[in-house]
Design a protein around this nucleic acid. Structure first.
Lengths: 357, 357
DNA sequence: GGAGTTTTCCGAAACGTTTCGGAAAAAGGC
DNA sequence: GCCTTTTTCCGAAACGTTTCGGAAAACTCC
């Protein structure tokens, strides 16, 4: 469609404009209404005119303006993705990105676009969660990386009529669901594996108290011990705050208290990396003198020396399922508001039997 | 604002609706026009009424509906981000993600939202690039990961009136710009470093012919050799197709032809990983018997054994600059359509002097 | 105190859709 | 041929903004 006068957008002159429904109507010699109804499959339009209109629309490469559509339909076919630690730290980033890929793939399959909000506690002061959603009129939101102390979380729970799904935060309600991994069994499997390898003095490095997943993982640890009739000892557990340094600190604290420790499971691979670094500096050899197991299976895990044995989370699947759940909720389908994904112990090199002698 | 009758969205009853400009007008006892002009800072409204309206808008937490706005303004304040290898492969993903973070940060600083399109050659058949943009009415696009064979690329170049910036593809024109890293000097620095360490027989593993960045990197390799009066030998160069296996294949081919090779620079860290794996299997010790240098500095690079010496690309900065450039173009500011970022050789452990004897 | 200016406000059209209610046209029935 | 039913179409309102052109009100000036 060539319009008579160029319009200006910034410094760009746009001569070729997208045709509107009006253009199609004119070209087809019918009313706007008829074009709309023809294209949207309503039964009250003659099949001949319908196909004529369809062909024309195709030829003129007509696409309905989504702004106009959503204005009247009150539906944007857009979901917001809020990732709070959208950070340049590439190590953490990889995890979120895989989740994002899953979200993106499923969304586009179901004909939703995703719009990405990055946020941080600072931003959360200025603009509330609902402002964010309302301004852009997203149909629903997926949130990842929220801490229990983040202001947004409160809002999500309060305004539970607005569809949202949380990743790794176990809140469920009218309009809010969540997807997470089976944290209990993940850590239990790790502990079991170590026990099978002959370990009895097993430490645990968790994330932080405020995170829900960490409570579950601690349960998994306790469960694993219990199954082998090993008594749980709180002094064998430290929080590493999901950071490399935190992991390093934690392991040295634990080892000073319990030099007899022969194995440690960590609540994230990042912390496991810190642990390995620290152990190396202490002259301990892995897994000869001490075994290490991580959690997540980030890409680095298979490149370390020794390669890290870890519990793999299906990150892509998490995003995929989150998108599915959210869109189900948006479109009013009945749906479980809680999805717990399986995970799997990936056995590599960092955990093994103790060397005799 | 409480409306009288609940509206239905899917299965959710929404009692609390966002107030519209009409609600504010009614509450303030003025016309819609005045509210709009008051809020948008026009001079033809009394300061008293302006502040009254502003307070009211604040109190009722009014936010203009962005769909309605963009419908009349023909501007969405949204930029599209098309990442073609938005894949679940987490190793490659990290790179794109960091770029994305940069884009996201700068965009939100400049008050743009980003909407994420993932694509693949298959999807590109169904929906053209311009369809994608027009349907969602994005103001501009950033594209990353496009191959020279991707249909979209042709379109970007053809419709150059639509603002777009490419990452790592050197196309510039009326409305299209690009940002990349200084590929020539990056590789040259790597070669220089090796020469300073005493190496003379230096191989080069590139990506593939069709990629523009690879031509530059090859130039950098040749330049580095030339500066040391080493003659360029094409049989010391192989394409590794940016994959781990490709890197492994490449190094074994090169070594079979040139067993005297003592150092190799790779056009990506991924390939360097493959090279290191292959060399290990061949019983070669790095860097004792052969040195390896990578390109990118992905997170894994600092966790391998030995730690990978590599040319760091500022991935976050790439995204940041790309967003800046695009928004400059959208808003009609004059701007350079080409940005070349510096990079830096990060010296770790995988490249060193040859061991005597 | 009236004309001219300035300040402050508003009505209405426009953006591109969807959809309700109804009207025109065609078909059916006798 | 006339009434009824069905099929096919359309006008107009609505969604929530922005903005043009003008009007009312308030000042200024002599």
């Amino acid at each position: 469609m060539i319009v008579a006068l160029p319009k200006r957008f910034g410094k760009f002159e746009v001569f070729y404009m997208s045709p509107t429904i009006k253009d199609i109507a004119k070209a087809a010699g019918v009313s706007i209404t008829t074009v709309s109804r023809a294209l949207n499959g309503y039964p009250d339009v003659n099949e001949k005119t319908r196909s004529r209109i369809k062909k024309l629309a195709e030829k003129m490469s007509y696409h309905p303006n989504s702004q106009a559509q959503s204005l009247v339909l009150k539906k944007t076919n857009t979901i917001g993705v809020i990732i709070s630690e959208l950070t340049r730290d590439s190590v953490k980033a990889a995890f979120s990105f895989e989740v994002l890929c899953g979200i993106s793939d499923r969304s586009s399959e179901l004909n939703y676009d995703i719009i990405l909000f990055s946020t941080n506690p600072n931003k959360q002061m200025n603009k509330t969660y609902s402002d964010l959603c309302r301004e852009r009129n997203v149909d629903g939101v997926i949130l990842k990386g929220l801490k229990t102390t983040d202001p947004y979380l409160r809002e999500v729970i309060d305004q539970s009529s607005f569809p949202s799904v949380l990743i790794d935060i176990p809140v469920a309600g009218e309009g809010v669901g969540h997807v997470t991994t089976d944290n209990v069994s993940g850590v239990r499997d790790a502990v079991r594996h170590l026990i099978q390898l002959g370990h009895r003095n097993i430490a645990f490095i968790n994330g932080y108290k405020e995170a829900a997943i960490c409570a579950d993982r601690l349960s998994g640890y306790m469960l694993g011990l219990q199954e082998a009739d090993i008594t749980y000892d709180v002094s064998r557990v430290e929080d590493g705050r999901f950071s490399e340094e935190g992991g390093a600190d934690a392991i040295s604290k634990i080892l000073s208290r319990h030099p007899e420790t022969t194995a440690v499971v960590c609540s994230s691979d990042i912390m496991a990396l810190g642990v390995m670094k620290e152990l190396e500096q202490m002259g301990r050899v892995i897994p000869g003198s001490i075994s290490v197991i991580g959690f997540d299976d980030i890409s680095i895990a298979s490149y370390t020396t020794p390669k890290l044995t870890t519990v793999r989370q299906e990150k892509y699947e998490m995003g995929y399922q989150a998108a599915q759940m959210l869109i189900d909720m948006i479109e009013g389908r009945n749906v479980k508001h809680k999805i717990v994904l399986d995970n799997q112990l990936i056995i590599r090199e960092s955990a093994d039997r103790l060397q005799k002698g």
